[in-house]
């Protein structure tokens, strides 16, 4: 599965997501980087919330995985990108999974669709039986 290319010259971190504590850690790392990238408070909050939803998805539905986090650059703007990867069952029907209120695991069904609304860029790659990768980016205004 093709990963988001790390931007040359910017640092990036990878953490494993295997427990609830890791979800908290993922949030803290994302917030730290969002602050350094000078996202507005509202944008920071949106990105951290999206990361929280996706990290939980990785844990609950993907059976654990990793988050890769880094700064990205495009057209002179800086952004924070977080990529969540698992090798879980994958998502059979993406359209359905992206619908508000649809859930396969007893949640509110706002995780994916909500996370997409909270960020500027959202890409999802999934293959049934081999895993899911979701990348989200928030750009500094």
């Amino acid at each position: 599965m093709s990963g988001l290319p790390p931007v040359p010259g910017t640092e990036h971190q990878t953490i494993t997501i295997e427990s609830n504590d890791d979800v908290v850690r993922a949030r803290q790392l994302v917030r730290g980087l969002a602050q350094r990238c000078k996202l507005s408070l509202v944008d920071q909050t949106k990105l951290v919330t999206a990361a929280s939803e996706l990290a939980r998805n990785t844990l609950v539905y993907g059976g654990g995985g990793v988050m890769r986090l880094g700064l990205v650059q495009r057209d002179g703007r800086t952004g924070v990108t977080a990529v969540f990867e698992d090798s879980g069952p994958g998502i059979p029907d993406i359209d359905q999974a992206m619908t508000d209120g649809w859930t396969s695991g007893g949640g509110l069904g706002l995780g994916l669709s909500g996370a997409r609304r909270l960020v500027d860029d959202f890409t999802l790659e999934t293959e049934v039986g081999s895993g899911t990768q979701i990348a989200v980016t928030k750009w500094a205004r």
């Binding site: 509202v42 909050t45 706002l110 909270l118």
Partner: peptide, 13 residues
Amino acid sequence: RPAVAITLVELGL
């Protein structure tokens, strides 16, 4: 907090 409220609304809650 305001930022939390805005985010929750955007999230759909």
